[in-house]
Lab assay of single mutants.
Amino acid sequence: RELEAFAERFKQRRIKLGVTQADVGAALANLKIPGVGSLSQSTICRFESLTLSHNNMIALKPVLQAWLEEAE
């Protein structure tokens, strides 16, 4: 499924970029996305391991996609 594929791609790109899960969480606050502050390292970890609820995964995907586009 698309969500699982994105989570895997996100993790691979993050590692290639040399960015930690905690760095991603902190950097999200800098994107100034309305309603989104920083996220914890454990939230990023749970996203990558697909252990968040489906609704949370869907909500976080565009936020993490925005970070990925900014980071690349």
Rank of each mutant, 00 (worst) to 15 (best):
A5L: 14
E48K: 06
I15S: 08
R13S: 15
S38W: 04
A27F: 05
P34A: 14
E70A: 10
G37D: 10
T20G: 06
K16D: 09
F10I: 01
T51E: 09
E48V: 03
R14M: 00
I15D: 07
L39F: 02
Q65L: 03
E8F: 13
V19D: 08
A71M: 10
Q21P: 06
K16N: 10
S38V: 15
A7D: 00
P62G: 06
A71I: 08
L17H: 01
E8G: 10
E72A: 05
S40H: 13
P62C: 02
P34T: 11
G35N: 09
F6V: 01
V36E: 11
A71S: 10
S38C: 06
E72M: 04
S42P: 04
A5E: 08
G18Y: 00
S42N: 15
V19F: 14
V63C: 11
S40D: 14
V24S: 01
G25S: 09
L39V: 14
G25T: 11
L17K: 03
A27T: 15
I33T: 07
M57K: 03
I58E: 15
A22N: 13
A71N: 12
S53H: 08
E8N: 03
E8M: 13
L68I: 11
K11H: 10
W67S: 02
E4K: 09
E72R: 03
L28F: 06
K32A: 11
V36S: 11
A5W: 04
S38F: 14
L60G: 02
I58K: 11
W67K: 00
I58N: 12
K61I: 09
G35T: 07
A26C: 11
A71Q: 07
R13W: 05
N30V: 08
V24F: 01
E48R: 01
I58T: 12
L31D: 13
L68V: 09
L28I: 11
A27M: 08
G25A: 15
F47V: 01
L31F: 12
L64M: 08
G37A: 09
V19M: 15
E4V: 12
Q12E: 15
G35L: 04
E2F: 02
Q65H: 11
G18T: 00
E69T: 11
F47I: 01
S42Y: 11
N55S: 11
K16H: 11
A7H: 01
R14W: 00
G25Q: 03
L52S: 13
S49R: 09
F10V: 01
V19H: 13
Q12G: 04
C45F: 13
Q65Y: 05
G25V: 14
L64R: 01
S53F: 06
G25C: 15
L60T: 05
T43H: 05
R1S: 10
V63A: 09
E72H: 04
K32I: 12
L28K: 00
G18S: 03
S40T: 07
C45M: 12
A7E: 00
S42H: 12
S53K: 07
G35C: 03
Q12I: 08
S40F: 03
V19Y: 13
T51A: 12
M57Q: 04
N56D: 04
V24W: 02
A26D: 13
L3T: 10
C45W: 06
D23S: 12
T43A: 08
A22F: 08
Q12K: 10
A22Y: 10
K16F: 05
A29P: 05
W67T: 02
R9Y: 13
A7Q: 02
N56F: 02
F10W: 05
N55Y: 08
L28C: 03
E4N: 10
G37H: 13
V63L: 06
G35D: 12
A29L: 07
A26Q: 12
E72F: 02
S49L: 08
Q21H: 15
I15A: 10
A5S: 13
A22H: 10
V36A: 10
E70C: 06
Q12Y: 15
Q12R: 08
E2H: 07
E70V: 05
